[in-house]
Structure formats: C-alpha cells, structure tokens
C-alpha cells in the first residue's frame, strides 16, 4: 500500500534557513535586553522587605477618604466621555478618508493614512505632557490627549473595516446614479456602523483607564489625587483609589462588553 503511488506524494519542502536566523536574532535580542537593564528577579527577593512595608502602609485602607474622591472620579469619567465623543466623531471622518474604498482620491487617502500613523505613534501620556505644557494643568489637557489618542485608534480600526466591506452595494449605488457622498452614506456606512459603535465603546473603556494615568502628569481627574497621595506617602489612600478605580473600570467594561456583543 505504501509503495502504491511513490511518485504522486510530494516530499516535505525543506524549511527555509531564514527561520534559524530569525530564532537566533530573537534570542540574541532577548539576552542583550536582559543584560542591558541588569534585569534580575533575585532583586525582587532582596527588596521584598520594602515591598512588604508599602503593602503594610496600605492597610487599613482609608475608606473614610472616599468623599474626597467623588469629584475627581467624576472628572475622570467626564474626561473619558468628552474625549470619546470628540475623538470618535473626528475618527468617523478620518477613517473614511483613510480607506481606498471611500477616499475621494489618492492624495487624500495618502495624507489621511500618514496623518493617522503619526498620530498613533505618539503615546497618550506624551500627548498629556504636551497639552499640560500648552494649556496648563487640568482636564482640558487630558481631554485633548484622549481626543488625539482616540482618533488614532478608532480611525485605524474603522478604515480597516471599510477596506474589507463587500463592494457589491457600492456598484449598485453607482448604477443608480448616486453621488460620491451618497454612495458612502448609503452603501458603506450601514455596513460598518455596528463595528464603529463597538470601537467607540471599546475606546471609552481605554479612555477611562488612560485618564487615570493622564492625571498623574497633571491632566486632571483621579490621577491628580493619586499623585498627591503618592508625594505624601499616603498608601492607604492609594489603596482606596486602586480599589475604586478597579470597581468602576470593571463595571464599565462589563457593560461595554455586553453592549458590544449585542451589536455583532
């Protein structure tokens, strides 16, 4: 049986030598990085005392401090809302301009695509630092940072969704004598709307978490309280902030996930 058709069966093609080069490079890079920052898990054991002291400082948690946190938490939440609304609205426009399916011409496509990569290559904390310097400490800097962060993420996701849309309805719109804008609105927009809403909800989750961090550099909200607590070594307050943040982010995420599931 095994010798029935000896010529018909292909032999396994030889694996490219490049695979081994890639593996070697990967290992070398890991070793170089490990060595370069003097990474040593043993240090963790040596400094365990210090870590234990901080954990000890966290308890008892400063539950009585919660009224102080209400306003900053609301501010963080509001920053996330405004950042999402403005960022996702702008992303709707940029996302369509950055897809070959819906860009009016090659120049607009190229410019939007480049703009999108540039915006995305700057991390949100860096935006916050820049805007804190530009418009001073406060929620405005935070919102601006979130807007930029959101445009980058949502426009990218949206443009890729538009790229993958079935083209049949566009042909139908053309055949009916539609204008360019009508064709995008009637034949493309309904196809990507559920995805777009899901991306918007997802970035709202990201924003909530990000705006905590943004506060650390002075861009408003709960993060600013976190920074003050840290400079005063109030780890009992920090513990409370961690707990409250965890609960809020967890709840919003659960809600967002269930909404997104309903969209698909």
């Amino acid at each position: 049986m095994s010798a029935a058709l000896p010529d018909a069966r292909p032999t396994r093609p030889a694996r490219s030598k490049l695979v081994w080069v890639a593996v070697a490079l990967f290992l070398a890079m890991t070793a170089w990085s490990w060595d370069g920052i003097g990474f040593s898990p043993a240090e963790l054991v040596e400094k365990a005392d210090n870590a234990r002291r901080i954990v000890d400082d966290m308890f008892p948690v400063a539950w009585q401090a919660w009224p102080v946190l209400v306003e900053p938490l609301l501010e963080t939440f509001r920053m996330a809302v405004i950042g999402s609304v403005i960022g996702c609205s702008l992303a709707l426009l940029v996302g369509f301009l950055a897809s070959q399916v819906t860009a009016p011409n090659g120049v607009v496509y190229g410019v939007s695509k480049t703009l999108m990569s540039v915006v995305r290559s700057i991390p949100d904390v860096l935006y916050a630092l820049l805007f804190v310097a530009a418009v001073s400490i406060g929620p405005l800097a935070g919102v601006l940072a979130l807007v930029f962060f959101n445009v980058g993420v949502v426009a990218k996701l949206l443009s890729e969704t538009v790229d993958a849309v079935p083209l049949g309805p566009l042909e139908a719109a053309d055949a009916a004598g539609a204008t360019f804008v009508q064709r995008v609105r009637a034949a493309v927009f309904p196809q990507v709307l559920p995805n777009y809403l899901a991306y918007a909800l997802y970035t709202f989750e990201l924003n909530l978490r990000a705006s905590v961090v943004l506060g650390l550099v002075g861009a408003g909200g709960i993060g600013q309280v976190l920074r003050i607590a840290q400079t005063r070594y109030r780890y009992d307050v920090i513990a409370l902030i961690i707990f409250v943040t965890f609960v809020i982010v967890f709840l919003v995420e659960a809600l967002s996930i269930s909404l997104r599931r309903r969209l698909s």
């Binding site: 079935p166 049949g168 309805p169 139908a172 009916a176 064709r183 009637a186 309904p190 196809q191 559920p194």
Partner: peptide, 22 residues
Amino acid sequence: FQGFNLVNRTTVLNNVLMGRLY
C-alpha cells in the same frame, strides 16, 4: 446583479430607496 448587491445590515426598504438616490 448576480450577487444581489444588497446592503445586508440595513432594512429592505432602505435598500429599495437606494434606487431613489439620484
């Protein structure tokens, strides 16, 4: 069209009204 070319994620009526776009 052979593949119908409807927008699947919207209503039948919205698809029909694409014929009025002009």
